[in-house]
Design a protein around this nucleic acid. Structure first.
Lengths: 267, 267
DNA sequence: GGTGTGGATTAATCTGTGTTACTCGATCGG
DNA sequence: CCGATCGAGTAACACAGATTAATCCACACC
């Protein structure tokens, strides 16, 4: 067990939704962690009553419902996230928490979160905000699955992941690591793997993004946002203003390309 | 403003997920409330920064996303629920909270929840559990929308609502008040109103339920549960064991079942 | 170097569900 | 009493997306 650098990604995440004092940062720096490097589709929480939380440092993890057809993915987490914070307060777990691609996680004892909640009201509130932000994401994902078509769902997912990565200082250049298989994507969006493939082809053909060698490069952010009808308010980020203003290089060519295709899609 | 009987439905709800002490009941009895009788599709939270929570006493309310096609409904609440508890900790609201059919709600100041959290650690934990149970429902609903077909979604919704009503002492006889329009149902399940109608016809033809004069009568609970693949674990209820054992014909059995749940918590 | 495996891709076919458009009652306000 | 409105119900047609099945490729492993 060490108290190391792991806290800094978590601090980024907390700071993305709530202002942190230097006292808060001190508390975070004393977080006891034990780091693991995990392979793809590694299952965390092996059935037991959990006594530790999983703090994601690198890569992605997701909740997947093993019972449902094709294993519906209910949420995806990015570095800095604490996917199972809720287990501190409610030991029951309905879904499997597993890695998408390889990942680095820190294991943090429940006790630590209980202690900082007692020591600092502002940390207590910050943790609660994390849980609430999670619920907002779930609600938004319900809207996505219930009312949008496959293309829009996929586009929306990419927008969300990109935005969340940027909130913790990653994906600065709109390139996001993507160890996802197309089946993962399908399981998240509630579509078949075959159709997921069709959608990706279409997104590529529309020059909205590239996806090669486990990296997605968004080549037309504004086009993707418009296609998805993406509005990041539900992420509860403090600093995300004026989404339209993300500047891209070579704006001209892509803009022309996009307008011909996206305008057709969005009457 | 009165401190009245409104707390008792809320006490039922809390007791359904966590054990309450008599001190907790005392605190609940001092809840300041102001009761309103509302008509159908009444919008609560008229755009302002809310300073009160809405405690549902009778009828149903739901969150609906006005932006999405056909206004996706993200969750439905039953008496005893506190749909907007989260506004105590996070003022932002993404969706509209509105009544389905007419309803009776109590308005409770945020201040009250802050106070009981400070006065009683167990109440503080109970409120947190409410929020977490809500998130579990959302997650489950994602699975529903993402991986089940229309028929199963509808059946699952009816199972959930019935179970939640029973958890607060209602729907004892598997008859649930249903002021919903078929369009409401469609908006909740992410299907079209026309198709919702087809599904209901089918459920009727299968002798699983009747729906007449604003009441749904479930005539084959076990059949409905099986069709829906319904498993109530995600509702986080304490007393819901062995779902297969719900007896229908024998009024005696259900009475005994319920009394063990409800009588235990009333002083 | 051969073989197996998992993922991407594509095409053909089938089906669940959306859309549109209509009828029929019930309810309501003038 | 009338016309307007809203919700339930139905039918015809269109289409998004599921399913199945095949090929191809990259890569790991004996």
């Amino acid at each position: 067990m060490q108290t190391g650098f792991a806290f800094s990604k978590f601090a980024d995440r907390l700071a993305s939704i709530i202002e942190l004092s230097s006292d808060d940062l001190d508390l975070l720096a004393r977080m006891p962690t034990s780091i693991s490097h995990l392979g793809p589709r590694h299952r965390l929480h092996k059935g037991d009553q959990p006594s530790h939380c999983c703090l994601l440092l690198q890569g992605y993890v997701c909740y997947q419902d093993a019972e449902s057809r094709d294993g519906q993915i209910t949420s995806i987490y990015v570095p800095g996230d604490l996917p199972d914070l809720h287990t501190v307060y409610d030991g029951r777990v309905d879904h499997e928490l597993l890695t998408l691609g390889s990942a680095v996680v820190a294991s943090v004892p429940h006790r630590y979160f209980r202690e900082i909640s007692v020591l600092s009201p502002s940390m207590s509130r910050a943790l609660l905000r994390l849980l609430l932000a999670d619920a907002c994401c779930l609600r938004n994902w319900i809207v996505n699955l219930g009312s949008r078509d496959a293309m829009t769902r996929v586009a929306h997912l990419f927008c969300e992941i990109t935005t969340r990565l940027r909130a913790v200082g990653l994906a600065k250049d709109l390139r996001i690591p993507s160890p996802f298989t197309q089946s993962d994507l399908a399981a998240a969006c509630g579509i078949s793997a075959v159709h997921a493939n069709r959608i990706i082809q279409e997104l590529r053909r529309s020059n909205l993004l590239r996806w090669q060698s486990k990296t997605i490069t968004i080549t037309d952010w504004n086009g993707l946002v418009r296609l998805a009808g993406f509005n990041p308010d539900y992420l509860r980020l403090r600093e995300y203003n004026n989404i339209e203003n993300i500047e891209q290089e070579s704006a001209l060519a892509t803009t022309i390309d996009r307008s011909s295709i996206v305008d057709a899609l969005l009457p």
